[in-house]
Design a protein around this nucleic acid. Structure first.
Lengths: 379, 379
DNA sequence: TCAATTGGTTCGTAAGCATGACGAATGAAA
DNA sequence: TTTCATTCGTCATGCTTACGAACCAATTGA
């Protein structure tokens, strides 16, 4: 199944060669898998010398994986079939009231199923990406942008609403996995994703696996001692780095330089591109500090690549500045790039988690410690 | 074999229960293992109700693992038997000339074998911990404390001298693993080790495995933007953090404060304990910056525990200061401790690597991705 | 038309492990 | 002292999984 997921349809003979199992073992296995509905014959392979081969493919509609992104203003959902092909993608404006989330999630699932014409009972697993951390009691901690969310038992509500196994993951971690997934076969297995937006966050993949840390707090970089005095009381409160290059911090800096306190993030970038001095100095200072974040990440975990995302981090002009800054602070070259998925990274990463869990629960014997890798993203 | 390594000697019936394999499967396996010399009968278990059981134990002398620590001034060696018991431990003053290293390593191995009365052909694997990084050509990079070492083909020389498979590992990584091993069964699987000495370094264990990074440069924290302006030219050269709290940096700071440029590290700590103001301010500033290192580590990888080691980092008075500093920069409590192995951490970690590799090559089928954990350290 | 090549099946066999019956050895209760 | 429950370990047997080899099937190209 792993071969079929990764390399697509194939004949039994070629599967025998690529797995090392004998031909008739493969034949037997495929018979069982076909009986159970996981694979089916999908035409023939001919043209070469020798007998034509019967092609077997995974029945893409044998299972579906759901990914949701619970944003402050938007609720996004993606439905993928078992082969990793996105079959439906929707978003809707989030209702601010915490209690409405589960209702909206249920509606989103229904509309995705309808769009893909998929039966509900074929959705085994859903992953919900949230800001902050889901605590063991099922409540969401550290998510100031979702006011009132702490009070509700979100885990239970969503499990009831989605009517399947539900996994929770931090939104930045999910976005990291999304960008990793998007990179496909030749993705770097050591990968870091920095999210700059309302808050700052970091997702790290080591050997293709998310690094969560002992208290699920790996990548909570808002308190990194960069861009301000870490021993100041305000740093303990808001976080030094968060104060320096979070959206609020950037706007404050722009206000200091320009006197304009009403400018939005978009205004500041527009003025930066128009060449305004205050905006230029604001963004440059942001890049200067972000470069130190990259330096910190490379010093500690040494990834192949650092990708920026989030409302602010995805801006190519900012990433270009950061990239240009790097040789001033570190000798070893490091690839600094803007994410390719934009605001979709999180929801796609959540989908990837569902998909991976589904594959492993379906096709991997539980006793074995090995895990099946993700198939190529097809969208 | 894994059960026997972890839990010690046991009867076949109890192995059957703990592994889930049937009794006679265990009997068959033990027969083969006994034939090959890996296990042997070791008395009987009686006292409970029922028939007395024949006890089987791993033959501790069936294999030995060698660990070496190539320090600037000292060459340390440890020989462990297959059960994880240290059977010999020696050290000798390192000959400064690079070419002598292999000769000394060979002599060290011979003396360890003699002390343990172990046959040479039972040593399958040696791990050599070195400063810096072993490049693919077999030469040692980034090891300024071993002058002239870059020129020699150290990997080939040591392979010839030690006459067995040789693994190379960074000394700080090895020390991290050593402290982890020492902690035994209840060790935290997410663990960070900070070495403060001539240089600064970091070793990280994620899920009990060393994090090496894409270019084997994870944990090279000398360049972290702490304790100095990272955009200064000197920081690009020496590293901002290295300049601030490396041994040279600390001495420079003490000289600035006291005017005494001849004081050794030991002098400074003696004067700190005697209450001298300049020494106190020097060490406090060191702790202030080291606390930011801890903050950086927790922000990025969120370990259970941060352990300090190295000449300077192992000083309990310094670690106490760092620990006291932590609540000022981060809300989440984190355990900050001094390592328990002192200068032996690196060589013991190297031994642990050898031991782990030996177990996995002997007892684990290569196809399976699972790895056998380390047995308890017995010394 | 036929050899070469590749795909796929049939059949026999071996490895590995489980099941269940049974003998051996022991402690505790009668 | 005897009996019995309990535990260790072996034996005989059978099931499952996978492989190897031979063989049949279908296609290309000389």
């Amino acid at each position: 199944m792993e071969r079929l997921l990764r390399d697509g349809a194939a004949s039994r003979a070629s599967l025998s060669r690529s797995t090392g199992l004998s031909k008739q073992t493969i034949s037997e296995v495929m018979l069982v898998l076909a009986e159970r509905g996981w694979v089916r014959e999908s035409g023939i392979i001919s043209g070469g010398v020798g007998r034509t081969a019967v092609r077997y493919a995974i029945d893409a509609r044998a299972g579906f994986a759901l990914g949701l992104d619970l944003g402050a203003s938007t609720l996004r959902g993606v439905l993928s079939d078992i082969s990793g092909t996105i079959v439906a993608e929707h978003e809707l404006a989030a209702d601010g009231r915490g209690g409405q989330l589960a209702v909206q999630a249920r509606a989103l699932k229904a509309s995705l199923l309808k769009a893909a014409d998929a039966p509900a009972d074929r959705v085994q697993i859903a992953t919900v990406a949230t800001p902050g951390v889901m605590n063991p009691q099922g409540h969401l901690d550290l998510a100031p942008n979702l006011p009132g969310i702490r009070a509700v038992d979100l885990a239970s509500q969503l499990r009831d609403a989605l009517e399947c196994q539900v996994i929770f993951e931090n939104d930045v971690n999910a976005a990291a996995l999304g960008e990793y997934w998007e990179a496909g076969e030749n993705a770097d297995n050591h990968f870091a994703f920095v999210s700059l937006g309302t808050g700052v966050g970091l997702g790290i993949l080591i050997d293709g696996k998310l690094l969560r840390g002992s208290g699920l707090a790996a990548g909570e970089i808002g308190y990194l001692p960069l861009g301000g005095d870490p021993y100041a009381a305000s740093s303990l409160d808001r976080g030094a780095l968060e104060s320096a290059i979070g959206a609020v911090g950037i706007k404050e800096r722009y206000q200091l330089l320009s006197g304009d306190g009403a400018a939005s993030m978009r205004d500041i970038f527009d003025r930066f591109n128009a060449g305004e001095a205050a905006a230029r100095r604001t963004i440059e200072e942001t890049a200067r500090i972000a470069a130190l974040v990259v330096l910190t990440i490379t010093s500690v975990v040494d990834p192949d690549r650092v990708v920026f995302g989030g409302n602010i981090g995805a801006r190519p002009e900012l990433v270009a500045l950061i990239d240009a800054m790097m040789p001033k602070v570190q000798r070893r070259p490091i690839r600094v790039e803007a994410g390719r998925l934009g605001p979709r990274a999180t929801v796609l990463g959540a989908t990837a988690i569902s998909l991976g869990e589904m594959h492993n629960s379906l096709f991997s014997s539980l006793e074995l410690p090995g895990r099946i890798g993700l198939p190529t993203l097809r969208q």
